[in-house]
Design a protein around this nucleic acid. Sequence first.
DNA 1: CATCATGTAACATTTAACGTTGCATGATGC
DNA 2: GCATCATGCAACGTTAAATGTTACATGATG
Lengths: 154, 154
Amino acid sequence: MMRDSKLSGVLHILLHMAEAGRPVTSETLAGAMGTNPVVLRRLLAGLRERGFVRSEKGHGGGWTIACDLSAVTLRDVYEAVGEPTIFAMGNRSEAPGCLVEQAVNGALDDAFDEARTLLLDRFGRVTLAALSADFRERMASRKSRCGFDAGDAA
Amino acid sequence: MMRDSKLSGVLHILLHMAEAGRPVTSETLAGAMGTNPVVLRRLLAGLRERGFVRSEKGHGGGWTIACDLSAVTLRDVYEAVGEPTIFAMGNRSEAPGCLVEQAVNGALDDAFDEARTLLLDRFGRVTLAALSADFRERMASRKSRCGFDAGDAA
DNA sequence: CATCATGTAACATTTAACGTTGCATGATGC
DNA sequence: GCATCATGCAACGTTAAATGTTACATGATG
């Protein structure tokens, strides 16, 4: 299994919600990406706290986008899902008394910090609106829509 | 547990070996970093194949450095330990038919690719000799040596 | 008030890294 | 030659984090 797909998953969901234009239930969204409604609610909880999405109970309830897609970046979403660990590699011990370990960790940490900064900067420059536009371009050439019917966005 | 500490671990071991200047057994090296001799042999197997280290059996056997420390970079070592996965994040599915997923994965993959390239480039610019020099500098100021006696390198 | 949908805690499953055991092979020293 | 040391390696056990699942409470709608 891929290590952590929260960011990828939640972006997928957000674009689907954006296409729908009306409340979509956790069950429908979960079905669209082959997972469980509860997993989905967990994922979206962080986004709700930040006001990126809204959830409503009862008949006709579900999830809706509650933000300007051009004002939210991948970095915002990354933070909203709890800033999951970026790297699958790391040091053996965090507070090593061994000088060899210190030298090694220092070199590795420097490199990882640089890469992390680059990645987050790049995330910060991509808005949800840009992703959505990218999707619509793909739509223009092909037609499949992942088994998920966006509703009135025909 | 930290995700993958092969690179960190093997670098630690290499510097210790470099300090020793004579064969060191898996058991000694494993003791120095609080792990198991078998784990260590697994780690070093890839380095042996590439000729970075040599192993000898029998009395007085063990591991020795078999390369010029200034000619081997962190990137070489990274490759020698099997190029472990760099990122802890990834896409839900690798071959998505969903156009939304394609748009999302495309954006994320671009960012990850850039970060990976930066990281590996940086690894490629750090030699084992540089790490060793860093270690010796630290030695000059303090004195602890991680419970591992390098032998004649007193 | 029946039904729908979310909120959430608790538990189960899965996967990859890591650890451990057991035994084979080869080298050294007597 | 033989006891001992050390690696080589396969097979299995352990563990932690992500994800999936169940169960039940809460609130909204018709």
